[in-house]
Design a protein around this nucleic acid. Structure first.
Length: 815
RNA sequence: GGGGCGGUGGCGAAAUGGUAGACGCAGCAGACUUAAAAUCUGCCGGACGUCAGUCCGUGUGGGUUCGAAUCCCACCCGCCCUACCA
């Protein structure tokens, strides 16, 4: 007894014991309800960042809490181990990506263990392991079978300085520059593999089965960007059809010109000889333009007339056809009808090039004689149609539907839906990823590699110098193979898969990471799925979280799962910032290193501080002095837990007060951990610590009340600070392990206050506070309040106009 | 331009219609110490006041309410995401 708290010694000892005894082995147990808790897996960059701690330790605390509440909890961990940084290290420092990655994983496993989290390491999955990526490749083939994977020529992000294509996640910032060299990216046409995420666009918009933050649902909804309208077919004077999509078929009569994307296939055919020079020059420039130039919205509009004309099918008007880069080939059909009077972009374009502007929606209050429009009038809700043939006079709000029906009747167009969401481009021209399991046969085309030949292993002896082509293309042994169908010499696909593909199904691989017959064991799946609580950063809202939802829906088609959504509930944590309030970065020099903190304070203190300093979904700046609060808390807990308490004289009142606080803290911490309010849970525990220290000094509570208070303190602190509580639990003579104890229940009777502070207000201002017995009727509280001397003074003998009583809390007297 | 989150003591924060600032950090005063650290006690939003207390105070301005940090309207500031999607 009285031994000083030595966190490093205590933590190392218990971590070892936990491992030896398999305390965190997580296995099917049908007698208990299951809870699958999942936190986003890290990329093995080499060092565990404080951000990893911030993401993982509160998740761990929540998982531990659920375990104590009686759930059979699965809380696995793994590594998203493919990706470009490994390849950069190879280029820069001449280390093989595999060596670099697996060394980092080894190091990070040790760092993760130092957190004292309840991860079941026997379920660890590593995406760069052939045992794992074999199944990533198998999924690719399954998607091919379901027609959810296809190959197409497409324009991808390309860094002209590094001479390589980039993944979307490597294109950074507002100006869309290369992560490595800051050069703005350009577009390059390449034959690529895509997954048909758009097939599920409507289902992805349905969030009814999942409890996800509003913010994520809004971001995904915007990202998917469903718009309804009509497809309408125009024709050139020569009779070539040009299909356009519009959300405003009601404005068709105001279409005064058309615009094609510069890459539109019809451009070559329709351009007149006189315009040929200007058009080809514009197209050439558009291709060379970087995305930064092309996608900046406030840039002045540019464009060129093709010399050709189209006929507006609703009124036979002859309208010029232009090309301009504000029309994107990748959305809709790559062509638009331009209605300058009612679209801001078309208005700007028409003004610049002197094109006709015809008003077809009259804004309420506007007269014909008011002169030309000063800006586009875009409301869908107010105004009526003018200059629109038989629809003239129709209210805009009605016109969209009516015109669409009319177009269908006339055979000019039909109702249509378009999505902003694009199919998922998964080809990557880099080495360190899962090879796409396809062989190109001169006779049979793209043939999937047979299951028995999976995995398609990444060869080790590869040249990494960036040339703009996949490194695997330079590897003769890999490249040349034979067709699985006919045996003729064939070439392998040399691109690898986007690493988001690996992370789209990792929650399934955790179920049976070494299963060599299935991507995951169906029996494990039937018990554990779906993930009950997912936690991670908001930055994955529109990428990973859409991909994994898509994957689960595709797996449902494959007959592998019966669920529609991978994760029932989602919670997004905030970010720990540097002490200066800025995002942590090496260049700013404000990075907080968790290893040094653990060495100095112990993991429990670091965990407690991370959960205490801010609300979890908010995050905030790190503060080196702030950690002293939790440090003192755990020192006090140690002192309390090791104290051999003997009362002097037991005071009944003090005894009841301590019991009340004990049951109140149980209630508060239970509710707070349920609601992810870790900071107030820790505050409540600190308050209880203060109460216990007072009792310790006064020595006026019974041994029973003391023990109840101290044991409860340890139990509610156990999920947050697992080591010190385990140690003190053992020292106090309880059985191993505290983490297997049932979560304490609070006794509502014991937690009840027997007196309250009655707040007495006059006109909403606090004028008196009176201690009264709890549970009194409103009428009695009113009497007490009116009898107050202070109230009498304020009322100056006049009767109150109104008295409002808030049950058990407050009386407001209106003078 | 669009969307989201936020603005409360010196600082991190509590409080989501009912006592603003729980809990903690820093600070100040005192105790212990040769000294420092650690620890302990007290104070700790501002103004006025000898005390009792009074007035002001949650980005700004209005409103609803017996009562507003909290609800509504308008605006200012900060951060994040997104960006010509027809």
């Amino acid at each position: 007894m009285g031994k000083k708290y030595n966190p490093n010694e205590v933590e190392a000892r218990w971590q070892e014991k936990w491992q030896e005894t398999g305390l965190y082995r997580q296995q099917i147990d049908k007698s208990r309800p299951k809870h699958y808790a999942l936190t986003m897996l890290p990329y093995p960059s080499g060092d565990l960042h404080i951000g990893h701690w911030y993401a993982m330790t509160p998740s761990d605390a929540r998982a531990r809490f659920m375990r104590m509440k009686g759930y059979n909890v699965l809380f696995p961990m793994g590594f998203d181990a493919f990706g470009l940084p490994a390849e950069n290290a190879a280029i820069k420092r001449n280390i093989h990506p595999a060596k670099w990655t697996f060394a980092n994983i080894e190091r990070m496993r040790g760092q993760l263990r130092s957190m004292g989290a309840m991860f079941d390491w026997e379920r660890e999955a590593v995406s760069a392991d052939p045992e794992y990526y074999r199944w990533t490749q198998w999924f690719f083939k399954k998607l091919m079978e379901l027609n959810l994977a296809y190959r197409k020529m497409s324009a991808v992000d390309f860094c002209p300085n590094c001479n390589t294509t980039l993944a979307r996640e490597q294109v950074w910032g507002d100006d869309r520059h290369c992560e490595r060299c800051d050069t703005p990216v350009i577009k390059k046409d390449l034959e690529q593999w895509f997954f048909k995420t758009t097939d599920y666009a409507d289902e992805l918009l349905d969030f009814s089965g999942i409890d996800w933050p509003e913010r994520v649902k809004v971001m995904q909804t915007n990202w998917i960007g469903r718009s309804t309208g009509a497809d309408v077919v125009f024709h050139t004077e020569q009779g070539d059809p040009i299909e356009i999509f519009t959300t405003r078929p009601d404005t068709l009569w105001g279409a005064t010109f058309m615009v094609l994307a510069p890459e539109h296939p019809l451009v070559g055919k329709i351009t007149t000889d006189g315009q040929l020079g200007a058009v080809s020059q514009y197209r050439e420039n558009a291709q060379k333009l970087t995305d930064i130039d092309r996608e900046t919205a406030d840039r002045e509009k540019t464009g060129v007339f093709t010399g050709a004309y189209a006929i507006n099918p609703v009124n036979d008007a002859r309208i010029p056809i232009w090309i301009a880069d504000y029309v994107l080939m990748s959305y809709g059909s790559g062509a638009i009808m331009a209605v300058p009077a009612h679209d801001e972009r078309d208005f700007e374009f028409a003004k610049k090039f002197g094109l006709e502007i015809i008003e077809v929606i009259r804004m309420p209050g506007r007269e014909e004689s008011d002169g030309p429009l000063a800006e586009a009038y875009v409301s869908k809700y107010e105004g009526q149609l003018v200059n629109s043939g038989e629809f003239t006079g129709t209210a805009v709000s009605e016109a969209i539907g009516q015109v669409t029906a009319w177009l269908e009747e006339k055979g000019i167009g039909k109702e249509a839906v378009n999505y902003r969401l694009r199919d998922w481009l998964i080809s990557r021209q880099r080495y360190w990823g899962a090879p796409i399991p396809v062989i190109y046969c001169p006779e049979h085309g793209a043939v999937p590699v047979p299951d028995e030949d999976l995995p398609v292993l990444l060869p080790e002896d590869v040249e990494f110098m960036p040339t703009g082509e996949s490194p695997l293309k330079m590897h003769d042994g890999f490249l040349h193979t034979t067709c699985p169908t006919c045996g003729k010499p064939s070439l392998r696909e040399t691109d690898t898969m986007d690493t988001f593909m690996c992370s789209s199904w990792y929650q399934y691989r955790y179920l049976s990471p070494h299963d060599s017959d299935h991507p995951f064991d169906p029996e494990e799946g039937a018990y554990w799925l779906p993930v009950d609580q997912y936690t991670g950063g908001i930055e994955h809202a529109t990428m990973h979280l859409i991909y994994t939802r898509f994957f689960t829906k595709a797996m449902r088609e494959m007959g592998l799962v019966t669920i529609d959504e991978p994760m029932t509930a989602l919670y997004n944590q905030g970010m720990v910032l540097g002490e200066d309030g800025e995002k942590m970065s090496k260049s700013r020099g404000n990075v907080v290193a968790p290893d040094a903190l653990v060495e100095k304070f112990g993991a429990d203190t670091v965990r407690t501080y991370l959960m205490f300093f801010a609300k979890w979904n908010q995050g905030g700046p790190w503060n080196y002095d702030g950690i002293k609060g939790p440090e003192r808390l755990l020192n006090d807990v140690w002192e309390i837990g090791t104290n051999n308490y003997m009362p002097n004289q037991v005071d009944d009142e003090a005894n009841r007060a301590l019991r009340r606080k004990t049951h109140q803290v149980i209630r508060k911490v239970t509710q707070d951990l349920e609601g992810f309010s870790f900071n107030t849970a820790v505050a409540a525990i600190m308050e209880h610590r203060n109460t216990i220290l007072d009792a310790k000094k006064a020595k006026n509570v019974s041994v029973d009340a003391w023990n109840e208070a101290v044991d409860s303190l340890l139990l509610v602190l156990a999920p947050i600070a697992p080591h010190i509580t385990e140690e003190l639990w053992a020292q106090r003579g309880h059985g191993y392990s505290i983490h297997q104890q049932p979560w304490p229940a609070w006794d509502a009777e014991a937690a009840k206050e027997d007196s309250i502070t009655l707040v007495v207000q006059i006109n909403g201002k606090v004028r008196d506070k009176i201690e009264v017995d709890a549970g009194q009727a409103d009428e009695a509280l009113k009497e007490i309040a009116l009898a107050s001397e202070k109230v009498q003074g304020w009322l100056e003998g006049k009767p109150p106009r109104q008295v409002i009583v808030v049950k058990g809390r407050l009386v407001n007297i209106v003078k």
